[in-house]
Write a protein that binds this DNA or RNA. Structure first.
Length: 470
RNA sequence: GGUGAGGUAGCCAAGUGGUAAGGCCGGAGUCUGCAAAACUCCUAUACGCGGGUUCGAUUCCCGCCCUCACCUCCA
């Protein structure tokens, strides 16, 4: 199936395809590991994951690379404040990131390169840029990219249509505060750092280079690592919209100035997540992490569902009502699947079944990753499912799983049932006995008591189930 | 100010030049001692405002109002 995806460089929907017709090479800008990722970060990573899963479900092969930014101002500053080495600090947050990704059912990328593990590649790239006249060394030992040397600069973010650039490179990024213009000898305020010379605030974080001790600039790692694992030209590059400028613009400049080859052939940018109608920010206190979500009793799967409920190019408004809605919708799907499983019994479907009544899900995903329409198609699909025999039920499960699998919404695993304390069991037993004896007043009293302790009882004809209150 | 995205029923959210997916919420019925759960069914004169093009616009064009984002921290 032809897969259409909007390309933010050409500003049009284009067929997404591997240049070599074999494997789609996909690079994603990953997290800076200096703290827990927030749900906005995860919106982007989940979208990338769904894109990959959808392509794979439709028979495409994908090579997925997502980097880890484990050296920058934030990681250095924070690790110093905590009096930990940079490596120890970033390892801790990397582990946490991986745990969160697993909880959200994100497929691990095939390669997850860390910036600090690719310093030589970055130095090599910077050296080539100097040799070709695209970069210069300032008198403090830092190396800058000369924006004026790259005529295509601004093609991704339409810089020409914007106001003239002002400000100083690295100033907001520099813990030392505003810098003296003479010190840096910049050719242009738009020039950006490729290599930052060692500063006192960097502590022990530095590497030797032909330009003295220092560390890589913000953008160079992605150019170096994408080239290392995917080649000078690759098929698709993804990230949040905020990375369009300057990060991706600078990646293009560095890479294309160096190789004289196109960098990424297709750009995939996902819109931001809003919280309660506002931008997420620490000052508003709405920068939720996965732990915050779980503390509210929401499952990671529901978060994933909620983050897929809108189209990726549209800002999505996250509210607690939305996520409650997602939890309910997901529970409806789980129940439906359980019923199918009951009907199917031991019968299993052949491996290579199709999408069945869920083929519109595939069509929606292949049409610019329309997850919202895909979710709608899932619900329309379940109405059309034929489960009149174990065989058809088994086939329906297979096609449902295929559709939900493309969205990364695995329902197969049951919710772990919470352990029921003995006193709760005893109360429930007493209530059941009272009910059987038609002593309803006593039964209701005991039911209230259970409720007060956070449990609810669901009666059947021949017994009852106990469930914790949500 | 510049650039970009958007305003669809109570909420979230697709989509289309010919009268509008889906989810949540809500309601009814079945069941139940009553509930809850489950199952079945259902509702809603929803397309920001004003013009224009058209046989016909929510969908294209123009203007306006409002919201949000980006403009060197940012997924």
């Amino acid at each position: 199936m032809d897969f259409q995806l909007y390309d933010s460089l050409s500003r049009s929907a284009r067929p997404l395809a591997a240049a070599d017709d074999k494997e789609l090479r996909f690079y994603c800008c990953g997290p800076t590991v200096y703290g827990p990722a927030h749900i906005g970060n995860f919106r982007t990573f989940i979208l990338q994951d769904v894109l990959r899963r959808s392509l794979e479900a439709l028979g495409h092969k994908v090579r997925h690379v997502r980097n880890l930014t484990d050296v920058d101002d934030k990681t250095i500053r924070q690790s110093r404040e905590e009096k930990r080495s940079l490596a120890e600090f970033t390892a801790h947050w990397t582990k946490r990131f991986h745990e969160d990704c697993a909880a959200l059912n994100l497929l691990p990328p095939h390669v997850e390169p860390a910036a600090t593990a690719h310093i030589p590649q970055q130095i090599d790239l910077i050296g080539k840029l100097i040799d070709k006249g695209h970069a210069y060394r300032a008198n403090d030992g830092s190396v800058y990219f000369r924006v004026s040397s790259f005529s295509d600069y601004g093609k991704l973010s339409r810089l020409k249509d914007r106001e003239i650039l002002t400000g100083r490179p690295g100033s907001a990024d520099d813990a030392a505060g505003p810098v003296d213009a003479d010190e840096y000898e910049l050719d242009s305020a738009a020039d950006f750092a490729l290599w930052k010379s060692r500063k006192p605030d960097d502590g022990e974080v530095f590497w030797p280079s032909p330009w003295g001790e220092g560390r890589p600039g913000w953008h160079i790692e992605c150019s170096a690592m994408s080239m290392a694992y995917l080649g000078e030209t690759f098929d698709l590059h993804g990230g949040g919209v905020d990375l369009v400028f300057p990060h991706h613009e600078n990646e293009i400049a560095q890479s294309e100035a160096c190789t004289c080859q196109p960098f990424a052939r297709h750009w995939f940018h996902s819109a931001h997540l809003m919280v309660e109608g506002r931008k997420m920010s620490k000052s508003l206190g709405n920068l939720h992490t996965l732990d915050d979500i779980r503390a509210r009793g929401v499952s990671p799967a529901a978060l994933r569902y909620a983050l897929l409920s809108g189209h990726y190019r549209q800002p999505l408004n996250f509210t607690w009502e939305t996520i409650h809605s997602a939890e309910s919708a997901l529970e409806k799907l789980r129940k439906f699947r359980r019923q199918l499983a009951d009907s199917a019994g031991d019968t299993t479907a052949p491996e290579n079944g199709g999408w069945g009544s869920f083929s519109p899900v595939a069509a929606a995903l292949a049409d610019d990753l329309n997850t919202s329409a895909a979710l709608g198609a899932v619900f329309r699909g379940i109405r059309e499912v034929d489960a009149t025999s174990p065989e058809t039920a088994a086939a329906a499960i297979a096609s449902l799983d295929r559709a939900l699998g493309a969205l990364g919404l695995a329902l197969a695993e049951e919710k772990p049932s919470a352990a029921i304390p003995a006193d709760i069991t005893r109360l429930a037993e007493e209530r059941w006995a009272a009910k059987q004896a038609k002593n309803f007043a006593e039964a209701d009293r005991l039911r209230d008591q259970l409720k007060a302790q956070g449990w609810t009882t669901l009666d059947r004809k021949d017994g009852y189930d106990l469930e914790p209150l949500a």
